[in-house]
Structure formats: C-alpha cells, structure tokens
C-alpha cells in the first residue's frame, strides 16, 4: 500500500532572516508577513486576504528592510536570506498611523475589524484633517484627471448612498478602502466573470460595473465571492444589511457550522452563520481545497428552502 501523499509537492528550501533582532527560519517563498505571524508578531493588514494575491495597496503593513530606501509591504515581499527586518520603528509606526488616518478620514471603517484598536495603538486621529464633506452621489460621474480644486474648508471622502439593486446583496461603497479583492475575486483570480472592475483614477477610483449599470444589467452571477473577500463590510448579504438596519444583527450570538453544499456534485464547503435557528449568511472556508472560499449563487444564497416555513 502506498504512503505517497498528494502529487506536486516540492521540497522548499528554508530561509533565515532577522526580524526585530530575532533570527527566524521560514520556507522559501514565504512573505515577511507570514514570517512575522509564525513568530506571533501582529502586523496590521487591511487589503490583505488569504485567498487573493496581495495587492499591497493599503500600505498599513509596511516594515523597514535594511538596504531599502523606502518601507516595504510585508504582505507581499518575499523573505530573502539574511534579510534584516524591523517591524516597529518610528518610521513604520508613523506610516501605519498616517495610513489609518488617511483611510479613516475618507472611508467609513466602522465595520472593519481591528481598526479601533489599531487607532489607539498607533495614536491615529482621523478627524484631525478637518470637517468631513457631505456625502455625494456623484462619485460615479467623476471626470478622469480633473477635480474641483479643494478650498480646504472640508475633508473629501467617499461617503455616498448604499447601492441596492438586487435581492441578494448590497454595495455600500462608503465603506470601500479599494483593496481590489472583490475585483480580483470576480476576475481572473477566481470567478472570471469580470462583472466589476476598477474605474476612474486617483481619489475618484472606484469599483464599478461598466458605465455604473446596476448589477442586474451587468455580468454579475451572484456568486458572492466578492462578499466573501470584502474586509470592510462594503459588500454584504441583504439579509445582514437589513438586520443591521433593524438592529437585530447579533454576531456574538451567532454560530458558525461547516458543512457541504446540497446542490451539485462538486462538494463545496459551506460555513453556515446561524442566529436564532435561522441561516443568516453563508461563507466558505478559505483554506478548503475544493472552494478556496468561493461558491456559486446556489451555495451562497440558495439556503432559504430550509427556512421558508409556514407561520
């Protein structure tokens, strides 16, 4: 009987480096972030997700690497032998503080995990840039390369009305930090539907369907893989959105149970989020070899048949 494990396993060499004066050995191909995590060091991350190639767009995970003129994104920089890394210097702390302030002053981070704690830890005060400008519903009409010159009386932000154009999920781009994960999940990295892209440029950059059409007119197939990767609550099940609006969303009372999708024979892993014996949301474990966190419309939203109960 064979004892061979799965195919394609390659032997990876190990790499020794120094992080905050401690020597650490990790496998070749690991990132500075993963090396830090194996040491039990917390590096804040916002745009990083474990199923998507790091975009290193948020720049909150920056560390100092000896020999590098600028700071280095730990989420994507691969370890190198002899690398000397510092994760908690004045420069890294300043950088994190400012990134949290820049995002906090322009985006609604109320549902982004850990932000309140990090704000305290790094002394971030997002309000110190000034009075926030009023929400606008014109962000989708921006002219590339042009803006109304700021007069400095208020602080620009991305606050805007919630987009509700279908029964299954909502898009609240006031909460969007432009991590690109939804676009990558919808696009080449997973779903390959490309219903949404990044449009515009600079501060007018936004997640958009072509010409900002409603999802129902777009290529969207409602797999919800964008919701799965969204780190800020900008993309959300309608069920969760409505419960939050009604004040009945109680995450601390919810259970999460892993099971398998009841539809086709692929066998996708589901995590059922249950509150008061009701499935209120479905996610998928990101480390599962079948799904990698991805589902289709049936797996993601097709759970209602077990709870359309006669009153």
């Amino acid at each position: 009987m064979s004892t061979q494990v799965t195919t394609g396993l390659q032997v990876r060499r190990s790499v020794q480096l120094t992080i905050d004066d401690q020597s650490v050995t990790v496998a070749e191909g690991e990132t500075i972030l993963s090396a830090c995590r194996t040491m039990g060091k917390e590096i804040p991350t916002l745009c990083y997700g474990d199923t998507i190639t790091p975009k290193n767009a948020c720049r909150v995970c920056m560390v100092e690497v000896e020999g590098s003129r600028v700071l280095v994104p730990s989420c994507s920089r691969k370890v190198e032998p002899g690398m000397v890394v510092r994760t908690d210097t004045e420069r890294t702390d300043h950088s994190r503080k400012l990134v949290l302030e820049l995002l906090g002053s322009s985006v609604d981070l109320s549902l982004t995990k850990n932000v309140a704690r990090w704000n305290t830890e790094y002394g971030s005060e997002p309000t110190r840039f000034g009075k926030p400008a009023a929400p606008t519903n014109h962000r989708d009409e921006a002219t590339t390369g042009h803006h109304h010159v700021a007069d400095g009386s208020s602080v620009s932000n991305v606050l805007q009305p919630v987009k509700i154009d279908n029964e299954l999920y909502i898009r609240d781009y006031s909460k969007c930090i432009m991590c690109y994960q939804c676009v990558d999940a919808c696009g080449e990295q997973w779903q390959n539907t490309f219903a949404i892209g990044v449009a515009g440029r600079g501060f007018d950059i936004r997640i958009s369907t072509e010409f900002n059409v409603d999802l129902t007119d777009s290529a969207c197939v409602y797999c919800g893989n964008c919701i799965q990767v969204c780190p800020t609550g900008a993309l959300m099940f309608t069920s969760e959105h409505n419960m939050r609006d009604a004040g009945t969303w109680k995450e601390e009372e919810q259970t999460q149970t892993d099971t398998i999708c009841p539809y086709c024979g692929v066998g996708c892993a589901l995590t059922l989020h249950v509150q008061d014996n009701e499935i209120v949301k479905v996610s998928s474990p990101s480390d599962h070899s079948v799904t990698h966190g991805n589902l289709c419309i049936k797996g993601r939203f097709g759970f209602q048949h077990v709870q359309n109960r006669a009153e």
Partner: peptide
C-alpha cells in the same frame, strides 16, 4: 491629486489631503 493612479492609500488620499492643507494654508 489628478495624476495619482489611486492604487495605494498614501498617494490616493495623501495627495488629496495635501491639496486641502495647502489650500487652507493659502487662506
């Protein structure tokens, strides 16, 4: 601000805040 591609936070938001502050300083 116009020419930032918008990809990373320090530049995307930083260039906006910079313009706002310079405008404030002008006053």
């Amino acid at each position: 601000r116009d020419e930032s591609c918008g990809q990373c936070v320090p530049c995307r938001v930083g260039t906006v805040r910079q313009e706002e502050i310079v405008s404030r300083l002008a006053k």
